[in-house]
Design a protein around this nucleic acid. Structure first.
Lengths: 194, 194
DNA sequence: TGCTTATTAGTGAATAGCGATTCAGTTTAG
DNA sequence: CTAAACTGAATCGCTATTCACTAATAAGCA
């Protein structure tokens, strides 16, 4: 078995366990069990419990950023691009529910450690939005007076709050697609030049 | 010293300590020290550590809901009401920074206990927004096709994400007022009938 | 190819420290 | 004098981390 296999197995197990029990309530032995390795093995691949969380965050969000950027390359119109971003973001829930739970819950903890990491990678992700807005302004599609630095966060925040709704409530009243359409509708209506 | 005084003192101390260290890293003895009571005294007023978090949440968010509703009574136009809500929400940061940190960070944990409480009171808070949207639709000010249940969350999410920015970054690039104006501008533009 | 030794990977029981909670005793108030 | 409020040191369970040991794999050699 290659080294990377164990690392992967532990990371994936950690996502499952953290999603289920939360970071602080998850025991190393839970993760070890889920990954089918000994407790001690985890410390061959990670420095400590935090390190597992941090490195899973870095790796997984890196993948998401890559995937999102790749997807957006196929599109050139700013309006379509923002819609695509929204759909992609909300779709993460379908394909990586457990990861999304971890990102939603656990990475909001007031641990400087985590906050630092969250900030760096996270900014890279939401900057995808501000770049689209900039592009739209340059092309005269979006109103010049809106501030990409603020609106990127508002847009992300709106989508993120919908994500939270889906995670917390067992039976949401709306479908993901409905939500995506509504949010894009309002935002785009609010920022395009008529 | 009246009973309620101790309860209050402990609650306020807990807000400070939770904001500083996070729920799991906060020790009961930290809270006791901050409140200037003995460790054991805390258990005369609360069942356990979670109970402190839950009851501070209930009490404090209750106050916020009350205050917000009171404020909104003075206004009748839906557009103005939504703007007022945004300003009030972002202003919480100035007056109750530590409480906002606790709400942002700690109440997002994957603890069923907490989630349940969060959901109940929290829904009451964001429903203020959906009621305003409804009112606006009834009066023919807002577009009929937008769904209050979705847009209330989008609006709240946008504001909440700005709050997070202020909490996490020491020197934000924008002022609270700028942000409030921008977000309201885009949203209102997106939902009013022209 | 088979045998021996060295290196690396993996194991899981034991450690060690933490901190929530308790409770026997003390102080305060009526 | 009694009851209620308060105290804080001791308890006790919990679990992250360690480390002495074992297994697996690679390297060296005839």
């Amino acid at each position: 078995m290659r080294v990377s296999d164990k690392h992967q197995k532990i990371t994936q197990a950690a996502i499952k366990v953290f999603a289920r029990k939360g970071f602080f309530n998850a025991r190393i032995s839970d993760i070890a069990k889920e990954a089918k390795v000994a407790d001690g093995t985890i410390y061959l691949y990670f420095n400590n419990k935090y390190d597992i969380l941090i490195s899973l965050f870095e790796e997984e969000i890196g993948k998401i950023i890559l995937k999102t950027k790749l997807l957006l390359e196929k599109e050139t119109h700013p309006v379509e691009m923002l819609m695509l971003f929204a759909k992609q973001h909300l779709n993460l829930l379908k394909e990586h529910r457990e990861l999304v739970v971890v990102l939603q819950m656990e990475l909001r903890q007031s641990n400087e450690f985590i906050q630092e990491y969250r900030n760096t990678k996270f900014v890279e992700y939401i900057d995808i939005v501000s770049e689209i807005i900039h592009k739209g302004q340059d092309e005269g599609v979006f109103r010049a007076e809106i501030m990409p630095g603020i609106i990127k966060r508002a847009y992300f925040g709106a989508l993120d709050e919908m994500t939270r709704l889906w995670i917390l409530s067992p039976q949401p009243h709306y479908t993901l697609d409905e939500a995506a359409v509504q949010i894009c509708d309002v935002f785009l209506n609010g920022i395009v030049i008529k």
